[in-house]
Design a protein around this nucleic acid. Structure first.
Length: 483
RNA sequence: GCCCUCAUCGUCUAACGGUUAGGACACUACUCUCUCAAGGUAGAAAUACGAGUUCAAUUCUCGUUGAGGGCACCA
């Protein structure tokens, strides 16, 4: 049975890198008829952020990769929040000390810091010096009776190798003598990641363990733990790490890293999934655009890349544009568009009917929905700024601009119907009679009506703007040109 | 510093010993055109370096260099 998991720690907003591995974990489980589990690793009380767990769930929900088991929803292998089972870890650590695979350590953090500092000046690998390994039973008892704080450390073998066969990378070998005696249980009674992750992955029957490459060097410690417990070692698959443009590990510093940010920006979750999944994995037919269901069917480790990809938001934007244009129904598109309209516009009289006319005009121009407010501002704003110099430049001269606007106002005033074909017919024939080329003529009107040099097609724009706004803006511009 | 991982266009990637090294994003030009966008066409752009193995290396081996990750009472 395939059971996969993600095990985020609730220390902030859901990180895109976590979501990336979540997508792979979910797909692998579902592709093999297995389960996908969410486990919250909240053993670090100092970095705990309340609400973070809720955000993780919100992100998974948005991406439609709901876990089969997890905190709050139960399952046969709970609890799914590590802080809810501290006794278990304590007991397991105890077992290990009794069986000789672990030992108590009373060293203060001051001593450890000093030790590490010295090792560094000597260019040695920072590693615990086993000061407390030789403590006699009596000594230990004395200190315990004294209530001295202690941690429990793993006793790593002095020699030999620990190796594993990574599903993505093949054989990886570590020399045991280079592995530190990892702390398993902290002095506050909380387990460290290494203990908790092994105990839980075993208890929850997780296999394979699919996680980011950054965990690769802690894998031998965990394998040693499995072996100390006498448990079967699961398989590991270390996925490539997402990187910033400068090559470093994807970070807040250089990139938007919270999944929720992408949601707020109006990226479609399906587009984000498609993009993410395509990083570090290629479609057998070289397809760029494919849905997640297809990925689930196709995903396997043999097409996963080993090198760490750069997260390229430009390509994501392109893909999001493709999804906006091609994957949404008209109704869905309309809804997204509406969702990103600022409140002050929504309360305007008849804003809804105008938005319905407006939305289609921007469909093939959008990369993300958060662009909407800025793009449509001039359709609703009472006052817009119009750069007369810019306008004159379109018309070629002030005189021509003036001439055009005067003539157009003459045509458009008292128009029987404010309809796009009517406006178009009037203006086109006006341009023809006067011998104005389309480009300068239309551009002049475009700027006069919107203040922008890039808008949807002119006649659509004028029509949706409405008679009142068009006439008043044209008049105002004309007045400005008279000075 | 030590350990691990990785190395094809700027970016994402294909080619699992034999290809004019392919595609996508971005870029450039042309086209369409009232602008922008979308679309169409074309173009520029890569096997890090050095040895080996082989009739033949992007592909296998070793080394060099470079990049990233890890080395906490954080996960």
């Amino acid at each position: 049975m395939i059971r996969t998991r993600i095990a985020p720690s609730p220390t902030g907003e859901p990180h895109i890198g976590n979501i990336y591995t979540a997508l792979l974990n979910y797909a692998y489980a579902k592709g093999h008829g297995g389960q996908f589990i969410l486990r919250i690793e909240d053993t670090d009380r100092e970095r705990f952020v309340s609400g973070a767990e809720q955000q993780i769930k919100e992100a998974l929900d948005w991406l439609d990769i709901a876990p089969d088991e997890g905190p709050g929803q139960g399952g046969a292998f709970g609890p799914y929040r590590q802080s809810d089972k501290l006794e278990v870890y304590q007991q397991k650590a105890q077992e290990l000390t009794e069986s000789g695979y672990a030992y108590l350590c009373f060293c203060s953090s001051e001593r450890l810091d000093a030790m590490r500092k010295e090792q560094q000046t000597k260019s040695l690998q920072p590693k615990y010096d086993r000061h407390c390994l030789s403590l006699s039973k009596d000594e230990i008892k004395k200190r315990l009776d004294n209530n001295e704080p202690y941690v429990i450390r793993l006793k790593v073998p002095d020699e030999g190798q620990t190796k594993f066969n990574d599903l993505i990378r093949g054989e990886v070998i570590f020399e045991n003598q280079l592995i530190d005696d990892q702390i398993l249980l902290k002095s506050d009674g909380y387990p460290t990641y290494h203990l908790a992750v092994v105990v839980d992955d075993y208890a929850m029957k997780i296999n394979p363990i699919i996680r980011a490459e950054e965990w690769i060097s802690s894998t031998p410690k965990q394998i040693l733990l499995y072996q100390a417990f006498g448990w079967e070692v699961p398989q590991f698959a270390h996925t490539p790490l997402l990187r910033n443009l400068d090559g470093s590990k994807l970070s807040k510093r250089r990139n938007a890293v919270s999944v929720l940010w992408y949601k707020e920006q109006g990226f479609l979750s399906e587009a984000l999934k498609n993009y993410l999944v395509r990083l570090g994995w290629s479609h057998p037919q070289d397809k760029e655009v494919f849905d997640y269901a297809e990925f689930i069917k196709l995903f396997d480790f043999d097409r996963v890349c080993t090198s760490a990809p750069v997260f390229d938001i430009q390509k994501l934007e392109w893909l999001n544009g493709v999804y906006i244009r091609e994957k949404l129904s008209d109704k869905e598109y309309q809804q997204y568009f509406y969702d990103f309209i600022p409140g002050w516009i929504k309360v305007l009289p008849d804003s809804e009917s105008r938005l319905v006319q407006l939305a289609p005009l921007f469909r093939e121009r959008l990369k993300r929905f958060a662009e909407v407010p800025e793009l449509i501002n001039y359709f609703f704003a009472d006052e817009i700024e119009i750069d007369l110099e810019l306008l004159i430049k379109q018309a070629k001269s002030k005189e021509i601009a003036r001439e055009m606007l005067e003539a157009v106002l003459g045509e458009l005033t008292d128009l029987s119907q404010w309809e796009k074909p009517v406006i178009e017919k009037k203006l086109r024939s006006l341009g023809e009679t006067r011998g104005w080329k389309n480009r300068p003529f239309f551009m002049t009107l475009r700027v006069a009506a919107s203040g922008c040099i890039a808008t949807p097609p002119l006649f659509d724009t004028l029509f949706v703007l409405g008679e009142e706004k068009v006439i008043s803006r044209f008049k105002k511009v004309l007045a400005g040109l008279m000075v």
